[in-house]
Simulated assay, not measured.
Amino acid sequence: MALVSRLGEGLPEWTDPDAVVEAARQWLAGYFTPEQDHPGAVFVAEGEGEVVGVVSVNTRRHFTGSMEAYIGELAVAPHTARTGLGRRLLSTAEAWAREQGVSQMTLETAASNTTARRFYAGAGYREEAIRFTRALDQPV
């Protein structure tokens, strides 16, 4: 939970980062609830007695009907950025997904989070959809 605040970075200006962080906290807490519809896991990386990385993954049904794995959160401590830790966590989640028998992994990140987008593209992920959002209190 100490790394959840990292998930509020790179958001569009109309998105409340506190709300994103709270939603991520609740999502992660849900992985520890035994009544889940689909299997899920949380993997953490430790270094020098502290948690320095986390990734959560579960299975869900894609809109086409096939099962896929979905990464809900992936965060690393700032001092471990660009050390390969994020890539190792991503690989761990992918290995877990293969063990579940799914052949596709998806995730979402903010369009304005260019750092995350470059990271995922470098790991072989491709953009699948574009989501449009409009703040209704803003003039056109």
Rank of each mutant, 00 (worst) to 15 (best):
G86V: 01
G86H: 10
G86A: 00
G86R: 06
G86K: 07
R87S: 15
R87M: 08
R87P: 05
R87F: 00
R87Q: 13
R88D: 12
L89Y: 08
L89G: 01
L89P: 06
L89A: 07
L89E: 07
L90D: 10
L90S: 08
L90C: 02
L90N: 06
S91H: 11
T92H: 08
T92E: 14
T92S: 10
T92C: 13
T92M: 00
A93D: 03
A93N: 06
A95E: 14
A95H: 12
A95Y: 08
W96V: 08
W96K: 03
A97G: 06
A97K: 11
R98K: 14
R98C: 07
R98E: 15
Q100N: 03
Q100D: 07
Q100C: 03
G101M: 11
G101S: 09
G101F: 00
G101D: 12
V102S: 07
V102A: 03
V102W: 01
V102L: 00
S103F: 01
S103K: 10
S103C: 04
Q104D: 12
Q104A: 07
M105P: 08
M105F: 03
T106P: 02
L107E: 08
L107G: 08
E108G: 12
E108W: 05
E108A: 14
T109C: 14
T109R: 09
T109M: 11
T109V: 02
T109N: 12
A110R: 10
A110W: 10
A111C: 02
A111T: 04
A111E: 10
A111W: 13
S112C: 15
S112V: 15
N113Q: 01
N113V: 03
N113I: 06
T114K: 02
T114L: 14
T114P: 06
T114Y: 00
T114W: 04
T115Y: 09
T115E: 14
A116H: 08
A116Q: 05
A116D: 02
A116V: 07
A116F: 03
R117S: 04
R117K: 06
R118I: 07
R118C: 03
R118W: 02
F119K: 11
Y120D: 04
Y120T: 09
Y120M: 02
Y120A: 05
A121F: 02
A121L: 04
A121S: 12
G122A: 08
G122Y: 09
G122C: 04
G122S: 02
A123P: 09
G124W: 12
G124R: 11
G124C: 05
G124L: 05
